[in-house]
Structure formats: C-alpha cells, structure tokens
Design a protein around this nucleic acid. Structure first.
Lengths: 141, 141
DNA sequence: ATAGGTTCCGTACCATGGTACGGAGTCAAG
DNA sequence: CTTGACTCCGTACCATGGTACGGAACCTAT
C-alpha cells in the first residue's frame, strides 16, 4: 500500500506547475478539492494523491493537444461516463483541427527554414522577411 | 498603373479580418495609418494599398507560424533593415519551437486516433480518456 | 439633397489561462 | 515551543489578441 499523500506544493511540483495553477484548476472544477486532514478542531491541510497527479498530468497533456480547459472539463466528465459517442466526437474534431494546425506549422517551418538560409549569407541576396511568407496563406488561431 | 486603393473595410476583407482588427494592428504599430485623403477642408478617409494588404497577410501568416504580435513588429522592422543576424536568430528560434510543437501535436494526434478507435465499439473495451494520455507527457503553451 | 452605409476615434469590454498579494492558520525541525 | 516554511482563501491583477460601442464626420447612390 503506497498511499503516499502530497501537499498542494508537491502536487504542483509533480505536475510541473505552480501552486496557484492548481488552485486555479480547482476553481475551474478540473481538480477536486479534498477535505482538510488534521486533528479535530484544527483546520489541517488538504492532501492529494496519485489520482490527482494523474488528473493534473492529463490536464497538461490535453492542453498540449489543443483542448481548452473547458473541453478538458468535459473530457473528465466523459471519462467517468457512458457517452462514448460524445467522446469520439470530441476526439475526431480535435484530430481534424490538429491536422490543419500541423499542416500550417509545417508550411511555416519550411518558410522559416528558407528564410534562415537566405539570411545566412553575409552579403549578396537579400533576406526579405515579408516576401518569404507570401503565397501559402494560412490563418492563425 | 494599377494603383487601386482600399478603404479600411476592403483592406479588412482582403485580409480576412474585421475592421476593428486592422485598427488594433495600427494601434500596435504593425500597420501604418495613412493620412486622410479628401478635398481640402473635409476630413476625408484613409486609403490603403497593395502594400498594406501584403503587410496584413504577412501578419496573419506570421501569427500562424507562432510569432507573437510583438515579434511580428520586430520582423517588420527587420525586413526593412540590415540586421540579418537577428532575423536569422528569430527564424531559428521559431523553427526550434515549431519542431517541438509539431512533435507534441503529432503525439497528441496519435493518442486521439487511438482514443477515437477505442470509443468506437458499441460495447466491449472501455474508452478511457484519462488513461489514453498517460505516458507521453508534453507541456502545453 | 438626403438617406444609408462607412469611416473615424476614443474608450470599454471580452475570453483564456494564468500569476500575485496578503493576512491568518498550520506544520515540522531544531 | 519557537521559528521558518508552507497552506488556505479571497480578491486583484496580468498578458495576449482581439471585439464592441457610440457619436460625429464622411461618402455614395438615388
């Protein structure tokens, strides 16, 4: 039984975020707020466990996948639920968005690669930043 | 001589943004604010040209490449300038960031792909959202 | 020449995802 | 049993990138 328990500070470090960020996620309802543990009468401190660490890591990964915190909240509810169709829908939507985004970034990357090359030569050809991006017009956000 | 001129509304449409966004970019110093053109005595309206359209499109592409508006401002200054080293540096930094980001998104994509597959079956195996993201821990932003 | 659509401009407000502050309470080591 | 670090909580503030509002001026077509 390794039922180690963490303080909020340890949880934060385990997830690579700040304490304030944990509290923020709690306010957003993404992480539960355990009850205070301590001798009766004194307030005590809230204690977290592995489950919370996993939850936190999930949040960070899902963010990296481009989900908003609101969507992440929905995913968390879905995880414990039965609505597979909705889960699938969210996943597919995100995949489509990722495909677009990845294509955009790939395009941007090659533009930059060429730009860096052109700007390498001490003199000679110019290094025209604005012109470099002409043509492949992708929209941001 | 096709020196067509645009009103701000046309410029906005040409760039696929709203009028307010143009004004915002002007406030940020990313797009110039031409002087009002009109019969002496009357205010007249500001008129834009192809150069502005190109500038605007550049801004959108550079945003898609992950540059912040502040960096885009720097790029614009650099474009008309001589500091090739700095231009190169910005490009290379961004390429590195893009490489990381693209890798993250690729990872996220395959996680989601698998998740969508698992959540497809009507019954049988579960569709464990949180668990799906375990392992490849990438940080957001 | 008048109506309706634009433009101009300042200022306010918005969403997202945090980060900081500050006072009071709690905990752990020496 | 004190001292220093950490926690708790409410509230305020921040950066980024816009979006909205509203009145006055302006421009264009009828």
């Amino acid at each position: 039984m390794t039922t180690a328990s963490y303080t909020i500070g340890w949880l934060a470090r385990a997830g690579g975020v700040g304490v304030e960020t944990i509290r923020y996620y709690q306010r957003r309802g993404l992480i539960e707020t355990p009850s205070r543990q301590g001798p009766a009468g004194s307030g005590g401190v809230r204690r977290y466990d592995e489950k919370d660490v996993r939850r936190l890591r999930f949040i960070r990964s899902a963010q990296a996948a481009g989900f908003t915190l609101e969507q992440i909240g929905e995913l968390i509810e879905l995880d414990a639920g039965k609505d597979r169709a909705r889960a699938r829908e969210l996943a597919k939507e995100r995949i489509a968005a990722l495909d677009e985004k990845i294509a955009d970034l790939d395009r941007a990357r090659s533009v930059l690669k060429k730009l860096a090359r052109d700007c390498a030569s001490q003199a000679g050809n110019p290094c025209p930043i604005l012109a470099a991006f002409e043509g492949p017009g992708s929209r941001p956000r």
